[in-house]
Amino acid sequence: MQASPEAPGSGPEIALEVEEISVRFGGLQALQDVSLEVPAGTVCGLVGPNGAGKTTLFDVITGLLEPDRGRVRVGGVDVTSLPAHRRAKMGLSRTFQRLELFWSLSAGDNVKVGVEASRARRRGGSAHPDDAAHPESTARMLMDRVGLGDLAEAAVDCLTTGSARLVELARALAVQPRIILLDEPGSGLDSAERAVLADLLRDLAASGTAVLLVEHDVDLVMRTCEHVTVLDFGKVIASGTPHEVRSSPAVQAAYLGSSEASR
């Protein structure tokens, strides 16, 4: 386990560590030397203007995109060369900004695929309390947890965007992740759904899960995140508590475009 310079040894275990990731798409430097870490049991925010590289970073972390440079570590283990499904088996899970649901399946079955996938993962490994339960009931419980208990039979393309996002969230939780990356989970949610989401994020952190959150809803970020990293032009321009970040001149510049301040 590598100790980070910022939190030398003292803090909780670092669940996810991203080290100097760089990605280039043709002429566009999508990510440049991006480093961040997410300790277990915390919610960390990743914010930045459109095109700053947030989703690209998620793709790199989960293994859908190969970085030109840099390392990704999950629980201290270097996973940079592992394919996405192997990383998932190490407890990494995510949702997508542009929904990636199984459109042919019902909402409940979407979640069930996740439940069954995680069972296969633990087969032979340590017993989990949920293993006794039927996948059906585990899936139902997860749907309840995101507040969609009554929609298990619904076809996913009949759902509102907000509900569809929550189905994706339930599916991502179904694999019982140690680390979960959420890409704009709040967009399209109504205020009641947002409240459910905020509670859920806190519960996750309390149960020891590391959460990395991309979100444009500033209030949600302020309420839930312990630590915020700000990306701009593919670079980390600020990192700290929500309040530190908000008052950072570089962040003001990134959002408001003052060219002097960003130097």
């Binding site: 500033v218 209030d219 302020m222 908000r246 003001q252 959002y255 408001l256």
Partner: peptide, 14 residues
Amino acid sequence: MAGAAAASYLGKSG
């Protein structure tokens, strides 16, 4: 509008 825009980006409470 510059000030108003800042408020809408960075959250009204700030």
